[in-house]
């Protein structure tokens, strides 16, 4: 469904990604692990067109994404859930959700699976607080809202950056359950996570990044076997 091939990305003068490749098949939930500052978020932003790779190619359903604007990529069916929540603070919860709706309809698999009623059914908290300003929500509710907002666009692929960051353990459980539900609905998920324990419960496959490059790719059994990789690139 998506193939990222040898991309290089820069922030100003610093070279962040040194040839990153990864691949997701339809329906997979894949987790991208690695320490702070190795380029995980930049990888997601490069796919989304928010950072423009200087080299390499990103193909989504066979279409080249490099060089497109984020809104064009979103319209193809890629959803992005940013790291620091980034809900619209001066909009109400309901208006935030409305911002996720896209006018252009894509054919095929991405019929309107996610509607406002379905979202409110899945997130009763959001229904209760639909008239509240985004800034009045708790961290967990804000995380739910960012994911729900992206789902309103009925993406085929969803990119999620650190969904459990800064949340209490009980809320982390809720967020992971929600991701499992999203995935069951047929959406492909690429998730960046620092919380190894959280990731291992939900992901089918793992990629591990070190300094701007992939250092590992494999399923849970392979990850558990590769002790040196975990030691060098994950554990503190």
């Amino acid at each position: 469904m998506i193939e990222v091939e040898d991309i290089h990305s820069h922030y100003g003068k610093s070279h962040i990604l040194h040839g990153v490749s990864l691949e997701l098949k339809e329906g997979e939930l894949v987790c991208l692990l690695g320490r702070n500052g190795v380029g995980k978020s930049t990888t997601l932003k490069s796919i989304m067109g928010m950072v423009r790779p200087t080299q390499g190619s990103i193909r989504f359903d066979g279409k080249e994404l490099v060089g497109s604007q984020p809104y064009q990529i979103a319209r193809l069916g890629v959803g992005y859930v940013p790291e620091d929540r980034r809900i619209f603070k001066s909009l109400t919860v309901h208006e935030n959700l409305m911002m996720g709706v896209q006018k252009t309809k894509r054919g095929g698999a991405s019929e309107r699976v996610w509607t406002i009623d379905k979202i409110y059914g899945l997130f009763p908290n959001l229904r209760e607080r639909r008239g509240n300003k985004g800034s009045h929500l708790s961290g967990g509710e804000q995380q739910m809202l960012t994911v729900a907002r992206t789902l309103m666009g009925n993406p085929k692929l969803i990119l999620i950056d650190e969904p459990t960051e800064g949340l209490a353990p009980l809320i982390v459980k809720d967020v992971l359950e929600m991701l499992a539900t999203v995935r069951k609905s047929g959406v492909t998920v690429l998730m960046v996570e620092q919380n190894f324990k959280a990731a291992i419960k939900v992901a089918d496959r793992f990629y591990i990044m070190g300094k701007g490059q992939m250092v590992f790719a494999g399923d849970m059994a392979a990850l558990l076997a590769a002790e040196d990789v975990r030691k060098n690139y994950l554990e503190v």
């Binding site: 989304m48 928010m50 604007q69 979103a74 001066s90 909009l91 911002m99 996720g100």
Partner: peptide
């Protein structure tokens, strides 16, 4: 209006509005 929601959202975070599929430019 719906345009108004988009405009107010863009005041908060225009990059995110772009990533949600709106032609921000």
């Amino acid at each position: 209006t719906r345009l108004g929601i988009i405009l107010r959202a863009a005041v908060n975070d225009s990059e995110m509005v772009n990533a949600l599929g709106f032609d921000v430019p």
